[in-house]
C-alpha cells in the first residue's frame, strides 16, 4: 500500500559495503515507507543478500560509505541485537542450527528482548507458551518444533516457517526476508507467503529479497527493484517483475556493461 505521507521507515543513501576488502555494494539508494512491500530482485552475486546482511549488522560486512537511517536514527551505529529490539527483522536465507538451545526458550528470550524495548511486560514461561501456540497458526507449524533445538534437523521448509514464526513473535517494523522462497516447494511457499501477508499492516514494511518472480505471485509488491553490480539499476511496479520473468536478466547485464559498471 503506497501512501506518500506514510512514515519513512528506512532511508538508504549511497550505501557502500565490502566483505574481505571486496566491494559488494556500490551506492545503494532506497526509501521504504510504512505500509509498503518492496521486492529486491537480481542475479546471484548482484549484492541483494549483502544488502540484507548489512542492514542487520553482520560483522563480516564492512560499511565503507553512505548512510542508513531507520525511523530517523543512524541504523549503522547499532549492534545487531539493538536493531532487532528496535524492530528490524532479518529472515535468513540459511537459518543456522543451534544444538542444545531449545527453540521455545530461544523464541521466549528473543521475544522478551523486543517486548522490553517496546515497554511491554515480559512474558514468563507459561504466558509465553500460550502466546507462541497461538502464533503457530500463522505458519501452520507443528508445536513439536518448539521442543526441539533451534533449527536442528529441521527441513528447509521447516526452517523457513520457523523464521516467519519469529517474525510473528517479534512484531517487527521493517522485515527483510532474504530468499525466503529458496528451497521451498509450492505448498510450503504458499504457507510461508501466507504468513508474511497476514503480518503485513499499514504500520510496518517488508523488503523481499528474491531471485524468482514466483514468490511475487503470492505476495504482491508495491515496488520492484532490480539490483546489479551492487546498485539498484531500475525501480518499477509489479510489472517489472513480470518483465524480468519474461526476458530474464540478460538486459540487466547489457545495461550494466553500457554504463561501465562491471559486475564484481
Amino acid at each position: 500500500m503506497i501512501r506518500p505521507d506514510a512514515e519513512l521507515l528506512l532511508d538508504i543513501n549511497d550505501l557502500h559495503a565490502s566483505v574481505e576488502a571486496q566491494p559488494i555494494l556500490n551506492g545503494v539508494n532506497l526509501q521504504v515507507r510504512a505500509g509498503e512491500i518492496h521486492a529486491v530482485m537480481g542475479r546471484n552475486g548482484s549484492g541483494k543478500s549483502t544488502l540484507s546482511k548489512v542492514l542487520a549488522g553482520h560483522p563480516a560486512y564492512r560499511v565503507t560509505g553512505g548512510s542508513v537511517r531507520y525511523r530517523g536514527s543512524d541504523l549503522l551505529e547499532l549492534e545487531p541485537e539493538e536493531r532487532s529490539r528496535l524492530g528490524v527483522f532479518l529472515g535468513f536465507q540459511y537459518p543456522v542450527e543451534i544444538p542444545g538451545v531449545s527453540n521455545l526458550e530461544f523464541l521466549r528470550v528473543s521475544s522478551n528482548a523486543r517486548r522490553q524495548q517496546q515497554g511491554l511486560e515480559e512474558l514468563d514461561t507459561f504466558d509465553f507458551d500460550d502466546h507462541v501456540r497461538e502464533r503457530l497458526s500463522v505458519v501452520q507449524m507443528d508445536p513439536a518444533f518448539l521442543e526441539r533445538s533451534v533449527n536442528e534437523g529441521f527441513s528447509g521448509g521447516e526452517k523457513k516457517r520457523n523464521e516467519i514464526l519469529q517474525m510473528a513473535l517479534l512484531n517487527p517494523v521493517v522485515s527483510i526476508l532474504d530468499e525466503t522462497d529458496s528451497g521451498l516447494d509450492i505448498d510450503a511457499l504458499r504457507i510461508v507467503a501466507g504468513g508474511v501477508n497476514q503480518l503485513a499492516t499499514p504500520e510496518n514494511a517488508t523488503l523481499l529479497i528474491t531471485h524468482y518472480q514466483r514468490l511475487l505471485d503470492e505476495i504482491t509488491p508495491d515496488y520492484v527493484h532490480v539490483m546489479a553490480a551492487g546498485r539498484i539499476l531500475r525501480t518499477g511496479g509489479r510489472e517489472l517483475a513480470l518483465e524480468l520473468e519474461k526476458t530474464g536478466y540478460d538486459w540487466v547485464d547489457e545495461e550494466v556493461a553500457s554504463t561501465g559498471q562491471g559486475v564484481a
Binding site: 542487520a56 549488522g57 553482520h58 560483522p59 549492534e79 545487531p80 541485537e81 536493531r83 532487532s84 529490539r85 532479518l90 535468513f92 537459518p95 543456522v96 543451534i98 544444538p99 542444545g100 538451545v101 531449545s102 530461544f106 528470550v109 528473543s110 528482548a113 523486543r114 524495548q117 533445538s149 519469529q166 517479534l170
Partner: peptide, 23 residues
C-alpha cells in the same frame, strides 16, 4: 550462530552463554 542469536535481540555475552549452557 552468534549473529543469528544477536539478530534476534539476544546480546553477545548472553548468546554465548546460551549456547554453552545448551551444550
Amino acid at each position: 550462530q552468534l549473529f543469528y542469536l544477536q539478530s534476534r535481540g539476544i546480546g553477545f555475552e548472553e548468546a554465548v552463554s546460551m549456547m554453552v549452557s545448551g551444550f
